[in-house]
Design a protein around this nucleic acid. Sequence first.
DNA 1: TCATATATGCTCACGTAGAGCATATTAATG
DNA 2: CATTAATATGCTCTACGTGAGCATATATGA
Lengths: 351, 351
Amino acid sequence: MASDANVKRRFRGDGDISRIPSPLQHMETSNVEIGLNAAIVAVMDDEPVALVVRGEADGSGGIDGLPFGPFSPVEHRTLESGLRSWVAEQTGLELGYVEQLYTFGDRGRHAEPGDVSPHIVSIGYLALTEAGHARDLQRGTWRSWYHYFPWEDWRRGRPEVLSAEIEPRLREWALRPAVRTAPSRPVQRSDRVRICFGLDGGGWDEEKVLDRYELLYEAGLIEEARRDGREAALAWGTLPRLGAPMLIDHRRILATAIGRVRAKIKYRPVIFELMADDFTLFELQKTVEAILGPHLHKQNFRRLVESAGLVEPTGEVKTRTGGRPAKLFRFRREVLLERPAPGVRVKPARV
Amino acid sequence: MASDANVKRRFRGDGDISRIPSPLQHMETSNVEIGLNAAIVAVMDDEPVALVVRGEADGSGGIDGLPFGPFSPVEHRTLESGLRSWVAEQTGLELGYVEQLYTFGDRGRHAEPGDVSPHIVSIGYLALTEAGHARDLQRGTWRSWYHYFPWEDWRRGRPEVLSAEIEPRLREWALRPAVRTAPSRPVQRSDRVRICFGLDGGGWDEEKVLDRYELLYEAGLIEEARRDGREAALAWGTLPRLGAPMLIDHRRILATAIGRVRAKIKYRPVIFELMADDFTLFELQKTVEAILGPHLHKQNFRRLVESAGLVEPTGEVKTRTGGRPAKLFRFRREVLLERPAPGVRVKPARV
DNA sequence: TCATATATGCTCACGTAGAGCATATTAATG
DNA sequence: CATTAATATGCTCTACGTGAGCATATATGA
C-alpha cells in the first residue's frame, strides 16, 4: 500500500488515523476533475436573466452553457476565487455576491455511453449582480431563465406548457413501475409528481425548481436525459422540447440557483445585490416579483420593507414614473450588521 | 494543448465550446482529491452526539475525526453512495437520512507548511440517525458535540467559557488591524465578533455555529489554526484549549452540520429522523431542545406539533414517566407528501 | 392517603400579516 | 386649462399565529 505512508504524513502532528480501517488503496482518485460553474443572475427590465456562454463553432448555433472551468489548486487559492477568475476570463465580469450551491457528482449524468473521459464533479455557485453593472460584458449573453424553464414562468398565470405537455406525460410516467433503487421507504412516483408540480389540489411551491427539473429528467422528458443515454419515456420524436438544453449538467445547476434565490430572498436581504444603489420601492417590488413570480400586495410590501428597516430614503425622488414621483431609497447596509438580518418575507398576494 | 481534444470529446454531441476562451491547459487537475466526510448526528439521553473515529495508534490518545474517505468514481456510483460505503466500512453503521452540506477547498487549511501532498477538497455531509439504531457500532464513538464546541452549550445558561476565555481575546483581536483580502465593502472585525457572538446587546443566533468557528479560527484561538501554521493571536502557551480539535477540517464540517440541523428542524420535519418509531411529545420536545438549546414552552410546543399534523397518536401510552402516563405518537409520514412539509417552528421560550 | 411530578386542555393578550379604502401628486391628453 | 390616468403613500380593519399562564387529569412513591 504505497499511499499509506503518504496519508500518515498528511496527518502527522495531529495523531494518527491508523485505527480507521485503511482502505486507502483507493486514495488515488485520478480521473476526477472538479468543475466550477457559475449561475450568474440579474434582473433586467423586470426579467430574471442568467449569464450564458454559447458555443457556436460548429455552425449549428451550439448549445448554451454557464461560465465554468476546472478547479486548479495550483492557481486558485480557494474554490471561490477559482470561480471568479474563470468568470472574469470568460465573460469579463467581476463577480460581487457569490455563494456555493451544491456539488454534483452522479456518474452517468453528463457522460456519454462508453465514455472513458474523466469523471467530473461539478460545484455549482450562485452569483447575484446588478443589472447596470452587468451590461458591460466582453462575452456571453443574458438570457431569461424561463428560456430554460418555461414551466417556472407563472407571471401570466399558470404556464400553458404544464397542462399541455408536461402533466399528461408525467401522469403516464407515474403509472409505470419504478425501478427500485433506494431501499426503505419508497416514495411513489405519483406522489413525487403531485408534490413537485402541485397537482391534485396541491399548491405550486416556487422553490422546488430543482426537484421539478430532476423529475422531468428522470421521466426522460428533458433533452439532457436523452443525451445522457437514458431510456426515453416515449419515442423521442414525439416529445416536445421542454425548455432549451444546456451543456453538461448546467441546467441542473441553474435550477438549483433559481430555487436558492427564490428561497433566500425571503430570509436574507440578498435582493439588494440585484438593485442599483438608489431605487424606488416599486422597482424593488418589481425585482422581487421577477424572482418569485406572482404579484405582491403593494402597500403591504412597502410596509414590510420599511418597517423591517431594510431601506432608508435618500431624500431624492424619481420623476417621470408615470405618476406621482417616487421617493428613492437605498439599502441600509447596517442591517447586515444587525442581528439575524432578515429578507423580504413575502407571501404572494391572492393566488 | 494536449488536453484540448479531450475536452472537446467530452462535449461532443452537444456542440462545441470553443468560443469559451480555451484556457484549458489547466485541465489536468491532478493532485486534487475529493474527500467525503460524514457528520452523523443522534440524540442520546437528551445529549446531541456525533459519531467520531479516534486515531490511537501513537499512544497519545490521538485525535478525533469524522468517518471519511476519498471519493472513487470507479467504485462509487454517486458521491452520496461513496459516503455511505465509507461510513459502513469504518463504523458498521448503515446511514438513513443524508444530506450534503458544503464543499470546502481552501488551500492552507488542513495542510502542513511546506506540504506537497495532494490538495483535498472536502465534501461534508450531514446524516441523522435514531439513537436506538445507532448503538450497535462496530467502531467509533458517540461524543457530545459540545465536546468540540463548548461555547455552543447554552443548556445551563450562557456558557462560562464565553466571557471567561473567548470574549476578551476576540475583543483584543478585533482591535488589531485586519489584513485586507476581500475587495469592496469591508466588514469590521469588531462587527463580525459582535454579530457572531451576540455581544453588546445582540442576540445569540444558535444557527451561526460555523461563523463562530471560522471566526475563532481566523483569530487564531483554535488549535487547528496553529496546526495549519497560522500566526497565533497570542502566545499559544497562554491560550486555553477551546474545545477538542479534530482531524483536517472535520471540526469545520461538524460546525456546518450543527448549524444546518438547528436551522432545518425549524422548517422541515427532519427531527423525526432522530426519534424512535413511537415517542411521547415530551420526548420529542427534549430532542428538539437537545438540538436547539434553550427550553421550549411545553403546552405551546404540543399545540404546534399537533396542529401542524406532524404526528398522530398510536393509541398506546407510556407509563412510568413519573406522572400521568403519556400518550405515544408516531410521525405522520404522509406530511412528507403534503405540501410544503413544515418543521417544528419554534422560538425558544423566555430568553 | 397524600404529596408530587408529569400530561394535557383551555384561555387571553398581543403583534403581525393580508386585504382594502382613501388621498396625494404627478404626467398625458384634449 | 381641465380632465383623465397612473402611480405613490397613508391608514384601518380583521384574522390568525404565538407567547404566556391557569387549571385539571392521572400516574408513582413515601
